[in-house]
């Protein structure tokens, strides 16, 4: 670690520069990398020897089987439906929870902590695991996928939302309380206008990611593209897998473009 340094001005006054932690940080990072190579058993030789097989499979995907496209539309729209419904439901459900988790709105520390711990637990659940559990409860199909997407969106948008509520300028809220408004009205008219653009932007951003997530949920039987990807990889029909991936890529590009355009207009 570097020691602090004293800079002296021509007129004799001195300024103490605080010590820098950069060297220590670099050493710790290198050590962590070394430990993780050990723990995971990473070997460069495996990559150089077996890596070409990855490209073998990619090569078999081209040319993609265009005639298979007719069978891709159904699962693709299932995937998009799961993302839209799940994202919307999760984002709406997050609102009351996030308001309750904001320390500038709710003054009870215990309530705030309880909601936040709940959020952390939900966020820890991998979406694939949620989807798997959902298939046990609601059966195979898109409902399970929708619920998994909803749960993930709830925890993701929820955390961003309460952090956003906490950085809001409470001046207008105070003014409304002073003129005799209820806490609910004060929140609705002074906090909501401040958080709404950011909230919608976060929801759309989350939705973009959800389309990609939803595409793999079929692996655990939760419907959508993952179902046929899993099937065709199993049958080694890589030209059909290629077609599926290209269609998914196209859909993701279109959705991200639209979402990005909307988010740019939110200020």
């Amino acid at each position: 670690m570097r020691r602090g340094r004293t800079i002296t001005l021509p007129n004799g006054k001195t300024v103490e520069r605080p010590p820098s932690h950069a060297l220590l940080t670099a050493v710790l990072l290198a050590a962590a990398a070394a430990v993780s190579v050990q723990v995971t058993g990473f070997r460069l030789s495996v990559l150089t020897e077996g890596g070409y097989r990855f490209f073998d499979i990619l090569k078999q995907m081209v040319p993609p089987n265009i005639s298979y496209l007719d069978k891709v539309w159904g699962p693709l729209f299932d995937t998009i439906k799961m993302s839209v419904l799940g994202s919307a439901a999760g984002a709406v459900l997050a609102v009351p929870f996030s308001v309750t988790a904001s320390s500038n709105i709710v003054k009870n520390r215990a309530v705030i902590s309880a909601v936040r711990i709940f959020y952390s637990i939900v966020r820890t659940l991998p979406t694939l695991v949620t989807a798997l559990i959902a298939t046990y409860i609601f059966g195979l199909g898109t409902l399970a996928g929708t619920i998994a997407i909803g749960v993930f969106t709830f925890s993701y948008v929820g955390k961003l939302l309460y952090e956003q509520i906490e950085t809001v300028d409470m001046g207008a809220y105070e003014a409304m309380e002073a003129l005799g408004a209820t806490g609910f009205h004060a929140f609705l008219y002074s906090v909501v206008p401040q958080i709404l653009p950011g909230y919608i932007s976060n929801c759309l951003f989350c939705f973009e990611g959800n389309v990609r997530y939803a595409a793999i949920l079929g692996y655990v039987g939760a419907g959508g593209l993952g179902l046929i990807i899993n099937e065709k990889v199993g049958w080694r029909e890589y030209d059909k897998v290629g077609m599926i991936l290209i269609t998914l890529f196209g859909a993701v590009v279109v959705i991200e473009f639209i979402s990005h355009q909307i988010r740019k207009r939110l200020t």
Binding site: D169, G171, E177, A178, L179, G180, Q194
Partner: peptide
């Protein structure tokens, strides 16, 4: 709240919804 209706309040930092 009814009592506060007849008392106006003005703040140093205006406390308006700026957007």
């Amino acid at each position: 709240r009814k009592f506060r209706r007849k008392i106006g309040m003005i703040f140093q930092s205006f406390n308006l919804i700026t957007r």
